[in-house]
């Protein structure tokens, strides 16, 4: 029984059509709340972790242990005067942050979340091609960054946008090829090998053990997609002021900020689903959601450590890394996966 059925059973007195429509709406609202809460927790975690690693204390004034700091920050951003640059390209400028943020929220809808005792299956939507859908949505987000860069009519924003496009293009291909290897291996065991959930449920060993190269390539590609150090080309704060978000203030800036942290969280969830067994854990499958979250948070902390301890790569060397190193080894990974699947029957 999934959460959709669970909500419907409460609303069943309304009849089939209205009941399911309402259940879907409520489910979407739950998703939005989940995403925003997890983003707030992410930002709080980041600030605390960064502070402790840098031998500081971090936010501790608003609320107990500074827990309300993020809400205060959000209120401050919302209360700020919205300043529009004079020579902006109006529509792209205004739309860009929403493209980035809602693309991100959409991607969360297609992740399989596993079970949580009484609620049953927490997955929001089922799709037989959910992998393709998630990566299609992920490639909408760079478009938002480009729109922001071009719409701002600002040299720093334009350069930031161009850099981030160069970065995204050169890391997209190795990422997709390493996902392809997984789909290939899963297709030996399941008919719906593009469905993220059936990939995870039918695996014997986590794919990270079978394809460590794939795990490495995919993790680096997710770092690049989330664009933090060493790949924060879009921002480059010591060179390009603040990159594509230079001209943004208030809530629109907040959406870009949330987009960054959301991508880190999404990336960690994706890595743990594809390579580390996702909601499968050593103890009973009734708490799959907890396993997923634990794996996700550990990966998030690793990503933060990478962020805090790495300098920025120069843009031409970054493109080199993408095309000259990651692409060949992701092909090697693909061949190895083929050998494992066809030759050894794993």
């Amino acid at each position: 029984m999934s959460i959709l059925q669970w909500i419907y059973s409460v609303l069943s007195f309304l009849g089939h059509d209205v009941g399911y429509a309402l259940a879907y709406i409520i489910e979407s609202i739950i998703l939005l709340i989940f995403v925003s809460i997890s983003l707030i927790v992410m930002v709080y975690l980041f600030r605390k972790y960064m502070a402790r690693v840098q031998q500081r204390i971090g936010p501790n004034r608003v609320g107990k242990f500074g827990l309300l700091q993020l809400i205060a920050d959000a209120l401050k951003l919302a209360g700020k005067e919205v300043i529009f640059p004079k020579e902006r390209d109006d529509l792209p400028y205004k739309v860009a942050p929403f493209v980035v943020f809602f693309g991100l929220v959409l991607a969360f809808a297609f992740l399989p979340y596993g079970n949580l005792s009484i609620f049953g299956d927490l997955t929001i939507t089922y799709s037989d091609v959910s992998i393709i859908f998630i990566f299609a949505i992920l490639s909408i987000m760079p478009i938002g960054e480009v729109l922001a860069g071009i719409g701002s009519h600002n040299k720093y924003a334009l350069m930031g946008a161009l850099r981030s496009v160069a970065k995204d293009v050169s890391f997209e291909v190795p990422m997709m090829i390493s996902v392809l290897a997984i789909v290939m291996m899963a297709s030996a065991r399941t008919a719906t090998s593009l469905n993220l959930e059936s990939i995870v449920t039918t695996e014997i060993l986590p794919y990270g053990i079978l394809e460590p190269i794939g795990l490495f390539v995919f993790f680096i590609a997710m770092i690049a997609r989330a664009s933090y150090a060493p790949f924060d080309m879009g921002e480059s704060d010591s060179e390009l002021v603040s990159g594509y978000s230079t001209e943004y203030t208030g809530l629109r800036f907040g959406l870009f900020y949330m987009g960054l942290f959301g991508t880190i969280f999404l990336g960690s969830l994706l890595v743990s689903l594809l390579y580390l067994g996702g909601f499968n854990g050593p103890i009973s499958s009734q708490v799959g959601f907890i396993w997923l979250l634990v794996k996700g948070i550990v990966l998030v902390l690793i990503s933060f450590t990478v962020w805090l301890s790495m300098p920025r790569i120069r843009i031409d060397k970054l493109v080199n890394v993408g095309w000259k190193y990651l692409l060949p080894i992701s092909f090697i990974n693909l061949v190895l996966a083929g050998v494992l699947t066809l030759g050894l029957g794993w």
Binding site: A51, V53, Q55, R56, T305, S309, M310
Partner: peptide
């Protein structure tokens, strides 16, 4: 070297903060 640097950064997590409230 990168991983060694990450470990040495992360190992500061449990040290006493230098700042004073």
């Amino acid at each position: 070297g990168i991983i060694a640097g990450m470990i040495s950064v992360a190992s500061h997590l449990f040290k006493k903060p230098l700042t004073v409230q």
